[in-house]
Design a protein around this nucleic acid. Structure first.
Length: 933
RNA sequence: GGGCGGGUAGCUCAGUUGGGAGAGCGUCGGCCUUACAAGCCGAGGGUCACAGGUUCGAGCCCUGUUCCGCCUACCA
């Protein structure tokens, strides 16, 4: 048991370290695979192993933790499964940079095997950082079930999924244009390309007709360098400017080739550019389509490094020999400069115009991507009768999966309905190597060695051997595995079931199989997925497709989509802008609970979070407030428990605070059920600070001083405080757990104590009404008078209360001690026949008028105060009067509204009379006085 | 080009089915009232982006305009 005296100020540091350790040691967050209690499961969006905690993670994890802790306390068997993603390209980049910095061998010199070993070393050494940081945030994950996307179990799942999809015809290998990142030297899927508007130029180029030195066409392009790979020029068949030229030939500038002028009404828009389009099937996705329609040759000018290939320039593109040398082994942007200059010198460049257009960049390294023709593996998403996309669309449309907020559905449908096949092969080493082999004998000619290394390139017509250990043709077993690895998102798409042990039948032993079956049964489908919107397509949509396809059930029921955290100016945080705020710094500075509470209270749906540090300070103060409330209670603890009085009857104050508490419990529960973390946080804040501390504690000070109420009052302070701690725990786990320990005799952690449940019987509306009108409203009225007239609290005053009816007097009598203390009154005179002192401030309450006697010096202040009130009252009378004199309002508005308005108006009018009378009265006193002088 | 979200107090944001706008921080005034000065008490502050419309009544519903942000797109 801790000491009885708390420090004046809450110090989060030691508390946080202590409890994270304790929770883990006591296995408080352990999920039971065989429990009969209802399940609640969340899989964490696995952060990259390379990652370190940023505010996005902090928000994401805080929200998940609030749900997990709330459900755990509510009696659920909670699984919050943690883990990390191997993040293929990102991680490989990190280790490659490290190799470069060390100045040793690069990965090609090292060789594939050694390099991968090196990445594992790196992972063992620094891959756990982010999970440690999540622990510091208080994340109540079942840390014994941590997973990694390249664990043996998850890798088995990946292989199984690949093989099955291949056999179902939903995975295929095909040569076509893909997005190449020359920096990462790998293919990217469409959504891994970010588009950015850049200020570029539009080039208008003369394309001379073959065999006619004078005649030419003008084409417009933003990428003149690709003209070397043109294999046709297209015009619209209905375009009178050009249709006569269809079938004629162009003498392609800078090359020795002639290319046809073709008709393509699909590709060509007569309004755009010059109406004549150069077609480069090897470097443009649309042109590739057009080329396919017309059987055009596809010329690729570049290789995997994104640089021009001398062989391709010479043999394929037939670039003029004197140009080949200067154009060889150049990036496309360098090639552009050379091509433009050459065209200019040849008089073929007519003009250039400024032109903004979107440029594709790699989402990992921001390098400009190039369309590149190469064989790749694809997942067939939009297959008619076995459509992964269709199932995923239906699941959301039929509300088997709920997107929250619902507005994301439109985005989801929009993307899913226009989805393209998913390129899943990557030309990197770190990742799940594609489980496909080729026969070294039968496919010898298709296995192309990369010069100077043991690496291979597999030609597009090689025959894949999938799910078999020998060649189907020759029966040979001398096989070689496909060198590509799978897109990182392929394995994360399986995360909701691969982490639970799927496929159970492939577990290495019987115990593993049983455990996997139990886990899948208990926890799949998972309950809620909490994620930022930026990976809706990368991850969420693909999990839905895979989950439905392989488990035949949705992977989660609710998807809560939260916003992005931005800096105080609304800018996206990024390393390059240097505006990244490190949550760990904020936690160290203000305490983890303060940061968590801030994030939760700002998480209103459909809106980005602009994080202002002042806000965190405010909630740090809130932590301190709670801490001091505990301190106050401790200071009033009876010295000796044995001596404590038996519990007396519940006082008015107890009944009132219980009502207020349960009102708040109800609001908080409702808010949490609707994922309104902000509303829940606000409600708790309001109750804790402004109801419990500002009123209840202050009122209790009175009862604590009286023998007959001391015990009851103390008990009530403790009871309500404990409930508050429980209510607050999911938001502020550390502080509440620490304080809980001070009041708990038992050994149970607050983390697994029952969450408060709303009980309608605890609502005592009479107690609520009495405390509100007799105590609170009266105190507020007196405080207002004092405040407006700057009467210091040290100056106690008498108060006269003139009640309108007899019965209320008893109640006021009972409330007198509270009134006296909270309003700083010396004495109180009550009665129907109380007359107003001549010099007094006055206010109206629901049970009558109150008067605060004044000395002459303050009369002028009172007149000012009354005038302000009179002003407001008159304004209200005017507005309401207009409304009531509007016949249409009286005729059309609901009766209740009209009645309410009339009553309000009545009150205002009476009030005005009183105020006016009083102002005149005091005014008269004042002038009489000045007259005397 | 298309789509989505947003514009409410000096700042950051709430505002559930339409019935005279709220919070936190900041500001101003008063308090060391024996839990907390990271506190207590009181006060001031808003043409709800703009313009129309529907309605007895609009921050909320409809139309248009404007500014900001994001997503998306094959515009040579």
């Amino acid at each position: 048991m801790p000491d009885d005296v708390l420090d004046k100020i809450y110090d989060p540091k030691t508390v946080e370290e202590k409890w994270m350790k304790r929770w883990e040691e006591d296995r408080v967050f352990h999920a039971d695979a065989r429990s009969d209690r209802p399940s609640f499961s969340i899989v964490i969006p696995p952060p990259n192993v390379t990652g370190s905690l940023h505010l996005g993670h902090a928000l994401n994890s805080t929200l998940q933790d609030i749900l997990a802790r709330w459900k755990r306390m509510s009696g659920y068997n909670v699984l919050w499964l943690p883990g990390t993603d191997h993040a293929g390209i990102a991680t490989q980049n990190v280790v490659e940079r490290q190799l470069a910095a060390e100045g040793g061998k690069d990965r090609h010199e090292l060789g594939r095997e050694a390099f991968i070993e090196r990445v594992w070393d790196w992972k063992a050494h620094s891959g756990g950082t982010i999970l440690e940081q999540l622990k510091r945030l208080g994340a109540s994950c079942d840390w014994s079930r941590e997973r990694f996307t390249m664990d043996s179990g998850l890798s088995r799942a990946v292989q199984e999924v690949f093989v099955r999809l291949y056999k179902e015809g939903l995975i295929y290998r095909h040569k076509r244009l893909i997005n190449l990142c020359p920096q990462c030297r790998t293919a990217l899927s469409d959504i891994e390309v970010e588009h950015e508007d850049v200020q570029g130029k539009m080039y208008y180029i003369k394309y001379p007709l073959a065999g006619d030195a004078e005649a030419f066409l003008v084409v417009a392009t933003t990428r003149p360098e690709t003209l070397l790979g043109d294999t046709a020029v297209a015009v619209h068949p209905d375009d009178p400017r050009y249709n006569a030229l269809i079938g004629k030939k162009i003498k392609l500038p800078l090359t020795d080739r002639t290319i046809p002028i073709i008709s393509d009404p699909i590709l060509v828009d007569r309004e755009k550019g010059t109406g004549a389009v150069k077609i480069t099937p090897g470097h443009d996705f649309n042109d590739e389509q057009s080329g396919k329609r017309h059987g055009l040759e596809k010329i690729s000018l570049i290789d995997w490094s994104g640089e021009t290939s001398p062989w391709a320039l010479r043999e394929e593109a037939q670039v003029q020999p004197d140009l080949v040398k200067s154009l060889s082994i150049k990036s496309m942007s360098k090639a552009r400069k050379i091509v433009v200059k050459t065209l200019e010198e040849a008089g073929l460049l007519i003009k250039t115009e400024d032109h903004t257009h979107a440029l594709g960049k790699c989402y990992r390294c921001k390098t400009i991507v190039e369309p590149f023709d190469s064989p790749q593996w694809f997942v067939k998403v939009d297959e008619q009768n076995n459509s992964l996309a269709k199932g995923a669309i239906d699941a959301v449309r039929q509300k088997r999966i709920r997107l929250i907020p619902e507005s994301w559905e439109a985005n989801y449908f929009g993307w899913m309905e226009n989805i393209e096949d998913w390129c899943i092969s990557r030309q990197i080493w770190w990742g799940h190597q594609i489980p496909v082999w080729y026969c070294k004998v039968c496919d010898e000619s298709d296995l192309l060695a990369v010069p100077g290394s043991d690496e291979l390139i597999i030609a597009s017509d090689a025959t894949p051997i999938v799910g078999a250990s020998s060649c189907a043709k020759c029966g040979g077993t001398d096989l070689v595995q496909d060198p590509d690895v799978l897109d990182t998102w392929f394995s994360s798409a399986l995360w909701p079931f691969s982490t639970l042990g799927w496929p159970a039948e492939l577990q290495p032993d019987e115990a593993g199989r049983l455990e996997a079956e139990a886990m899948l049964k208990r926890f799949y489908p998972t309950s809620t997925l909490v994620s930022a919107f930026d990976i809706l397509f990368f991850w969420i949509a693909r999990m839905i497709m895979m989950g439905l396809h392989f488990i035949k059930e949705v992977p989660f029921k609710d998807v809560y989509i939260h916003a992005l955290v931005r800096d105080a100016d609304g800018q996206k945080m990024s390393k390059s802008k240097g505006n990244v705020v490190n949550p760990l710094d904020l936690m160290a500075k203000h305490g983890t609970d303060a940061l968590r509470f801030t994030l939760a209270s700002m998480a209103s749906p459909g809106r980005d979070i602009k994080l202002a540090e002042e806000r965190i300070e405010g909630y740090r103060n809130f932590c301190n407030k709670l801490w001091n409330a505990a301190r106050f209670i401790m200071m009033n603890r009876p010295e000796n428990k044995a001596e404590a009085h038996p519990k007396s009857e519940q006082t008015l104050i107890t009944r009132w605070i219980q009502s207020r508490l349960h009102q708040s419990i109800q609001s908080v529960s409702r808010a949490l059920e609707n994922y309104r973390f902000d509303e829940a946080a606000q409600e708790i804040y309001q109750f804790t600070w402004h109801t419990y501390c500002d009123w209840f504690v202050e009122l209790s000070k009175v009862d604590l001083q009286r023998d007959e109420t001391r015990q009851e009052s103390y008990q009530s302070l403790v009871d309500i405080f404990e409930e508050t701690l429980r209510l607050l725990h999911p938001f502020m786990p550390f502080l509440t757990e620490e304080l809980w320990a001070y009041f708990q005799e038992g050994e149970t952690c607050l983390a697994i104590a029952p969450y408060p449940v709303y009980d309608a019987q605890k609502i005592d509306s009479q107690a609520k009404e009495v405390v509100q009108s007799v105590v609170i409203d009266t105190v507020l009225a007196v405080r207002n008078m004092r405040g407006e007239m700057n009467i210091p609290p040290s100056e106690t005053l008498p108060l006269f209360i003139k009640t309108t009816e007899q019965g209320i007097e008893d109640q006021i009598e009972k409330a007198l001690p509270y009134l006296k203390r909270l309003a700083r009154l010396s004495e109180v005179v009550i009665g129907v026949s109380v007359t107003k002192p001549s010099m007094a401030a006055f206010a109206t309450t629901s049970y009558g008028e109150i008067y605060l006697p004044l000395d002459e010096a303050r009369i002028r202040d009172e007149v000012d105060r009354l005038r302000k009130r009179l002003d407001k009252t008159e304004k209200s009378i005017e507005v309401l009067g207009k409304k009531l004199s509007n016949k249409k309002f009286v005729a059309n508005a609901p009766e209740a509204i009209v009645e309410k308005t009339k009553m309000e108006q009545q009150e205002h009018l009476e009030n005005k009379e009183r105020l006016l009378g009083e102002v005149n009265h005091l005014q008269a006193l004042l002038s009489a006085e000045s007259g005397d002088v």
